[in-house]
């Protein structure tokens, strides 16, 4: 390729051009406002992960200078990173938000759920999630899922209807045309809404940089006691790791995704700043889920199966 073709087509070429981040932001804000206009009881699923943080940031901008007309819901696996819980509580206080927490531990204590042999609690989130949706009569549930994350998600709609069991039937999805989102649903059904559908991991990071959004520190390189399992670096924690045959070592790592500590792996990294993280992701040869999520390695259709049952 000649050097002449390497110049980016700049947004500034026309006075009315939008950068890709501007275009994605405008689309996501449109989605938030559609939901505010058409639903009675929307809620944002907020994990303290970067995608849900960007969702919240977009929602705050969409309704400025008014408060966001939604509450937040966190499904707490009990295996959370303490830094992320602290971040969550700080953000909730700062913006005067209303937070619902559904605890996986409560369902285990009541005998509704049982611990899995592998100790991971990510797949156990579905029951508490659906219970919270039903009890609070949430009719629209925002999730931070992106289509670039995983191949089953590539076929997900922005507005995704779930039946009274919370189930997703990929073959019966409503066609979604233009920017006309059909949120009609019967009593007991709800709609999952994915405002970040068209964002990539890199877009999310570039937007975090552009908007100077604060993230939990575990997204940046830090020293941590970790051990190797299934080809990933896991943090030692109360949930059962490491085993005797899994030596712990101190390494410079960071997290690309934030989920349950039991199945979310860290990557070796010296990226301590947002600029360094962006450079690292742009050069990465692995997807974020491939690099760091054991739950998606369970089978070729692991994500599709969890989504069908009501998972995000």
């Amino acid at each position: 390729m000649t050097t002449a073709t390497d110049s980016p087509v700049r947004a500034g070429d026309s006075p009315f051009a939008l950068s890709h981040l501007d275009a994605l932001e405008a689309e996501s804000v449109h989605v938030f406002r559609e939901v505010a206009g058409e639903f009675e009881r929307p809620v944002i699923l907020f994990s303290g992960g970067k995608d849900s943080i960007v969702m919240l940031h977009l929602a705050l901008k969409a309704f400025h200078p008014a408060a966001i007309p939604f509450s937040l819901l966190h499904v707490d696996t009990g295996h959370n990173f303490p830094e992320v819980i602290a971040y969550r509580d700080r953000v909730v206080a700062q913006h005067n938000l209303r937070l619902h927490v559904a605890h996986v531990q409560d369902f285990i204590d009541r005998g509704v759920l049982r611990e899995r042999p592998d100790g991971t609690r990510n797949p156990l989130q579905t029951v508490p999630l659906l219970d919270a949706i039903e009890k609070n009569r949430f009719d629209a549930v925002f999730g931070g899922g992106r289509r670039d994350e995983e191949k089953a998600r590539a076929k997900e709609r922005v507005f995704s209807l779930r039946d009274e069991f919370g189930a997703w039937d990929p073959r019966r999805q409503r066609p979604e045309l233009w920017s006309l989102y059909n949120g009609r649903h019967a009593v007991g059904e709800h709609v999952r809404v994915f405002p970040l559908s068209n964002w990539t991991e890199l877009d999310v990071w570039q937007y975090i940089e552009r908007e100077s959004i604060e993230l939990p520190q575990i997204y940046y390189a830090h020293e941590r006691d970790v051990f190797a399992r299934s080809g990933m670096w896991l943090t030692a924690g109360e949930w059962g790791g490491p085993r005797d045959d899994e030596p712990v070592e101190r390494r410079l790592v960071r997290y690309r995704t934030v989920g349950d500590m039991s199945c979310t792996g860290a990557v070796d990294s010296d990226a301590t700043t947002i600029e360094a993280v962006i450079a690292e992701i742009a050069a990465s040869r692995l997807t974020e889920r491939g690099a760091t999520r054991a739950d998606d390695k369970l089978s070729e259709a692991a994500m599709e199966d969890r989504k069908r049952e009501g998972y995000f």
């Binding site: 980016p8 890709h20 742009a282």
Partner: peptide, 9 residues
């Protein structure tokens, strides 16, 4: 990466 400089969609 070149991706970081892409500006239109």
């Amino acid at each position: 990466s070149h991706e970081a400089t892409a500006t239109s969609l």
